[in-house]
């Protein structure tokens, strides 16, 4: 397996009144054509890690890395033209809430067609046919209706599927999904995961799945990075998760209530200052 993405010593810092705050600290990992999960609680730096890879860190933030390469292209300080040729075509991002990522005054169809035509020259009719195909591929039953619909006319699950369709129409090699299912109902959540899973398998796409839900990630991904306070505390194969070594990973697993019942009161996490070192 060749690694398409190599990250070494990634740091992201934001200025504040009391000096820079390091929200991502010395994160290193590689990604092949697989499903990698990044798990952590709020403020763990998981989203900022994803954003830094796509060069979407807010302007006030400072990104440094010893190595940040995508298919041999050095992304550190890459010029805008490099980003333009990569983003949307070879690497894409799906955000948590489709409401904020889709243009509210354009129909879904037009947005996807535009995303497709940005790739290269193609006729309008061709792009339209391809878009309808894509909407079908993300299991939208009535693609013609969705094509002509505005984002606010769609339910959350539909919107998220349309969003994924838009991100995938360019057939990227790498997809970063930041909590793609958190705003969705559990039953819809599985449909979306199935689509992503299918794409990884059939197209050999690399997927970084960022989530706060350790159980969901462990059931979906091949490998899991557990982040705490900007640092990767444990990297573990999803199937070995029950044997996690780091107390934070164990704590995250044990603090969830189970349908089967069990411990009462629930175990709580005691945070250890040593984890920060």
């Amino acid at each position: 397996m060749t690694d398409m993405l190599q990250v070494e010593g990634l740091n992201v810092a934001f200025p504040s009144r009391d000096g820079p705050v390091r929200v991502v600290r010395d994160v290193s990992f590689t990604l092949g054509r697989e499903r990698l999960g990044i798990v952590g609680e709020s403020g763990s730096g998981k989203s900022q890690t994803g954003r830094a890879i796509l060069g979407l860190t807010p302007p006030s933030g400072r990104v440094t890395a010893e190595r940040l390469e995508f298919e041999g292209i050095d992304l550190r300080g890459a010029p805008a033209s490099t980003w333009r040729s990569l983003r949307g075509r070879r690497m894409s991002m799906v955000m948590q809430d489709p409401k904020f990522s889709l243009n509210p005054v354009m129909t879904i169809g037009r947005q996807i067609v535009e995303a497709y035509r940005r790739r290269g020259t193609t006729t309008r009719a061709d792009a339209r046919a391809k878009t309808i195909d894509m909407l079908e591929a993300v299991q939208i039953r009535d693609p013609e209706r969705v094509f002509a619909a505005y984002p606010h006319e769609l339910s959350g699950g539909m919107g998220q599927r349309a969003m994924i369709a838009m991100m995938l129409i360019a057939e990227p090699d790498l997809l970063i999904a930041d909590e793609p299912t958190s705003a969705l109902d559990v039953t819809v959540q599985l449909d979306v995961l199935r689509i992503l899973d299918d794409l990884v398998r059939s197209r050999g796409m690399g997927l970084i799945f960022i989530s706060h839900d350790l159980r969901l990630v462990s059931s979906f991904c091949d490998r899991v990075l557990v982040m705490y306070a900007g640092r990767v505390v444990e990297e573990i194969a999803a199937k070995d998760l029950h044997a996690a070594k780091h107390p934070y990973t164990q704590g995250l697993l044990n603090c969830l209530p189970r349908i089967e019942g069990g411990q009462r009161p629930l175990k709580t996490l005691t945070r250890d200052a040593a984890w920060l070192e």
Binding site: E41, H212, L256, P265, L266
Partner: peptide
Amino acid sequence: LDASIQAEVLNLLDA
């Protein structure tokens, strides 16, 4: 809330 905080709040409500 985060999972670990959820556990604390649920325990509090239980108690």
